[in-house]
Design a protein around this nucleic acid. Structure first.
Lengths: 134, 134
DNA sequence: ACTTGCCTTGAAGTACACTTTAAGGTTTAA
DNA sequence: TTAAACCTTAAAGTGTACTTCAAGGCAAGT
């Protein structure tokens, strides 16, 4: 499979696949005789994994660190797991931040009919509700 | 309250508060006699709202669009609500992306003991599980 | 008078994650 | 043989969201 097909299959642009390879987010890709990348299912899975982690906000730097551990032959299970746990914690925080924002906007939408004269009214209302929860 | 106190209270840097004001993410802030910003609770709430939306991944551009509608005197309830709903949809998608990544990493962590010889083993395992779910 | 510590502005600089460009190579089809 | 459609690389460019810098002002304390 050439890079264009891989791009279509994974939803990652050809340029980004090259970039990921150069940055060590995916393994080095074998070349065919003419020097073109010959992409197999193993690489597709690695690209897809990278895409998923990137979509969840994992930085290039952290993803590279993890992949380097992962692809090394040494037993660095401890470090890998620590890194994974650290990333999961960050993702959970981000997920919760987003959920809080969704709840906030949901509240705004639900109360649009009641009082929409001014920004202040609405913000006071939100503030009051927030205070009551404490 | 001066900008430094506001920064400490909201967790948004002084420079970012100035930037948010310039970009129209928060209203224009009143100045005291010497030209310094005099920040009250209303502004604090606006900064906090901006911070929360930013933390959830809402772009400066979209936040400005919403705030401009919000602070205008015209009745653009429809546009405001449409914008809010659009943003919520985006946030929900992002939240779900993150959750999928968390689930993936969780699976990895849970199965670390079983088979950690190679990246390929693990990825095959994930692939298999994924296929089974279809 | 001077240092400290805050403030102001506009402009320039930075980090991240790609994307785009430039210059060229190969393969296939007409 | 020439055009189309892919590929390669290195390097430069881009957008976002700030941060940092430079140059100066104000107010209080020593």
């Amino acid at each position: 499979m050439n890079i264009k097909e891989a791009s279509e299959k994974t939803g990652v642009s050809s340029a980004a696949i090259r970039y990921y390879e150069k940055e060590g987010l995916i393994p080095a890709i074998d070349r065919s005789d003419n020097g073109n990348r010959e992409i197999d299912e193993r690489i597709i899975r690695r690209i897809t994994f990278a895409r998923q982690m990137r979509a969840a906000g994992m930085s290039i730097e952290n993803l590279r660190r993890y992949i380097q551990l992962f692809d090394s032959n040494e037993d660095n299970t401890r470090e890998q797991m620590d890194l994974l746990r650290e990333q999961m914690t960050q993702m959970e925080e981000k997920r919760d931040d987003i959920q809080a924002a969704i709840d906030h906007l949901h509240y705004k939408l639900d109360h649009y009919d009641d009082h929409m004269q001014s920004a202040e009214d609405e913000l006071r209302e939100l503030e009051r509700k927030h205070d009551n929860q404490k």
